[in-house]
Design a protein around this nucleic acid. Structure first.
Length: 441
RNA sequence: GUGGAAGUAGUUCAAAGGUAGAGCACCAGAUUGUGGUUCUGGCUGUUGCGGGUUCGAGUCCCGUCUUCCACCCCA
C-alpha cells in the first residue's frame, strides 16, 4: 500500500514536443564540433558574442509578419511584460548592433553559437530547440566580404571532417532583375517561394504552379529557363552568362557574382560552389548573394548551412545603414544527418583517454598515477565504485575509454589496450605515460 | 497550425477479444586466478496516458500526449 501511494505521486519525467535530452554519446561530439568551429572562426578573426535567450516580443517580431509570428515562443513574464524566446541569432544580432554600434569596430566580424527556439512541428532533423552557429560580417558591402563568408563556410565543413558538401549560390538582386525584365516583378515573393520548391517537387510541378500564378505558360517557361541548367555540368561562369542574358545584360549584381567566383577560384575552392538560381531563401531580409548547403548523400535533409547578404540588417532598430553578409550552420540538423550517415565524427565520444580500475586497496597509488597522467596531458577517469573487476572493465568500455590502468602489488602498473587487447605489465608511472602516449597515436 | 501512420520490459520484436511472452541487456552467485567463456538463479511492464463498448480490451471506439511522414516553413 505504501508502495502504491508513492507510485502515484511520481511526476512523469516527460519531455516537451520537439525538445530533447542529449546523452554523452551525442553531447561529446557536439561539444567537439563546437570547439572546432570556435577555433576556426577565431582563426579568421571572428569574435564571439552572446545575447539573451529572452527579449521583448516587439524586438524579435520587428514589423511582424507571417511565419515567425506563428513559430515564435512568446508569453508574459512574471512582471506582465510581453517577452519572446529568440527564434534565430540574426534578429537579436541586429538589435545588438543598434544598441552597441559605437562600441564596435567596423567592419565587425562576429560568431555566435547558441540555442534558438521555434514552435514548429518537429520532424527528423527539425526540432523546437536547436543550436545555430552564426557568423557574419557587418559594415562591408563588397565581394571580398561575400567571399570571406563562403570561405569560412568551406573551411568549417573541412574542419569538421564532413565530406560531400555542396554550396549552392544565387543572387536575389539578379533574380528580381530578371523578373523585372520579364515584366512580372509584382509577383516577386510568390514566385520566389514557388521556385524555392524546385528541388523538392520537381520541375514539372513548379511549372504548373508558376503557370497558375502568372496565368501564362510562356512566362512560367521563361522563369524555368532561368533556374534550369541547360545541362547538369554547366559551369559557374556559363550559368552566370546565361543569367545575364535573361536579365537584360551585365549589371552590378552579375559583376559581384563574377568577382566572388574569381576569389573562390584563386583560393582553389571554387569547385564546391555551384551557381544555382533556384536558391531563393524565402522572403527574409536578404538582398544580394544567398546560399544553401547540401550534403550529397542526404539532399532531403535540406540545408545545413544557409545565409546571404542583407543590406540593411539593423534598419528596424536604428537609422544607421548597416550592410552585412552572414551564414548559419544548423548544428543539430547536421548532427542528425551525420548520425544517419554513420559518420565517424559523431561516433568518437570518449570521456577520457585512460581509466584507472581496481583501486580499492591502493587508492593513493592510483590517484598519484592519475595525477601523473593528467600532467602529461591525458584525460584520466578513476573508477570510484565497489564492483568486481569484470564490471569495472565493462564500465570502462561503456564509455569507450580505450586504455585501462591497474596497480600491481609491487607498486608498478599494468596498462591494457581494450581495443587491440594488448597488455603491458610492470610499468613505472612514467613508463605508463610514455606507453599510452606512444600507443594512442 | 492542417492531414496521415505508429506507440507493448532498458532495447529489438511477438501475442489477429480469452492467463502479456522471447532474444539481447541488466542484477546476484559460482567458475574464469587482473573482465569478456560457461553454469545457476532473478528482476523488469499500471501494453504512452485518460475515458468508453464488452462477461472479458494490448487488440474495437473516442479523446489526449509523443514520435515519424506530408503540407507550410526552415537549420
Amino acid at each position: 500500500m505504501g508502495v502504491q501511494e508513492k507510485a502515484r505521486t511520481i511526476i512523469q519525467p516527460r519531455l516537451l514536443k520537439g525538445f530533447r535530452d542529449s546523452l554523452p554519446a551525442s553531447e561529446i561530439p557536439k561539444k567537439a564540433i563546437i570547439a572546432t568551429l570556435e577555433a576556426l572562426f577565431s582563426s579568421y578573426g571572428f569574435v564571439p558574442i552572446d545575447t539573451p535567450a529572452l527579449e521583448y516580443t516587439e524586438v524579435l517580431l520587428g514589423k511582424g509578419g507571417g511565419e515567425t509570428d506563428k513559430q515564435i515562443f512568446h508569453f508574459q513574464d512574471n512582471g506582465g511584460r510581453e517577452v519572446a524566446m529568440r527564434f534565430d541569432l540574426t534578429v537579436p544580432f541586429a538589435r545588438f548592433l543598434a544598441l552597441h554600434l559605437n562600441e564596435l569596430p567596423l567592419p565587425f566580424k562576429r560568431f555566435h553559437i547558441n540555442k534558438v527556439w521555434r514552435g514548429e512541428n518537429p520532424q527528423k532533423g527539425r526540432y523546437r530547440e536547436f543550436i545555430q552557429c552564426d557568423f557574419d560580417i557587418v559594415g562591408a558591402d563588397n565581394a571580398e566580404a561575400d567571399y570571406e563568408i563562403l570561405s569560412v563556410m568551406d573551411a568549417s565543413f573541412a574542419a569538421m571532417g564532413v565530406e560531400g558538401v555542396n554550396f549552392h549560390l544565387a543572387h536575389r538582386g539578379l533574380f528580381s532583375q530578371m523578373l523585372a525584365h520579364l515584366g512580372i516583378g509584382e509577383h516577386n515573393t510568390e514566385i520566389l517561394r514557388t521556385v524555392d520548391k524546385l528541388r523538392k517537387i520537381g520541375r514539372d510541378e513548379v511549372k504548373i504552379e508558376l503557370t497558375a500564378l502568372l496565368a501564362s505558360q510562356e512566362k512560367a517557361l521563361d522563369i524555368l529557363s532561368y533556374i534550369d541548367k541547360e545541362d547538369g555540368d554547366e559551369s559557374f561562369l556559363a550559368t552566370l552568362e546565361r543569367l545575364e542574358r535573361l536579365s537584360g545584360g551585365e549589371s552590378e549584381h552579375s559583376r559581384r557574382m563574377r568577382s566572388i567566383h574569381g576569389y573562390l577560384a584563386s583560393a582553389t575552392i571554387a569547385d564546391r560552389f555551384i551557381l544555382d538560381p533556384s536558391i531563393t531563401r524565402g522572403l527574409d531580409y536578404y538582398t544580394g548573394l544567398v546560399y544553401e548547403t547540401f550534403l550529397e548523400a542526404l539532399p532531403h535533409y535540406g540545408s545545413v548551412c544557409s545565409g546571404g547578404r542583407y543590406n540593411d540588417l539593423a534598419g528596424l532598430y536604428t537609422k544607421q545603414h548597416l550592410p552585412g553578409v552572414g551564414s548559419s550552420i544548423g548544428l543539430d540538423r547536421l548532427m542528425s544527418a551525420l548520425e544517419e550517415l554513420e559518420s565517424p565524427i559523431v561516433r568518437a565520444g570518449s570521456s577520457a583517454d585512460v581509466a584507472i580500475i581496481d583501486i580499492r586497496d591502493r587508492f593513493t597509488q592510483c590517484d598519484r598515477a592519475a595525477r601523473l597522467l593528467r600532467q602529461a596531458g591525458l584525460a584520466v577517469s578513476v573508477y570510484l565504485g565497489e564492483k568486481k573487476i569484470g564490471a569495472q572493465y565493462k564500465w570502462v568500455e561503456e564509455q569507450t575509454i580505450r586504455y585501462a590502468l591497474l596497480s600491481d602489488d609491487e607498486g608498478t602498473f599494468t596498462v591494457k589496450d581494450l581495443v587491440d587487447k594488448r597488455t603491458w605489465t610492470q610499468l613505472s608511472g612514467e613508463d605508463a605515460v610514455t606507453t599510452i602516449k606512444k600507443e594512442r597515436i
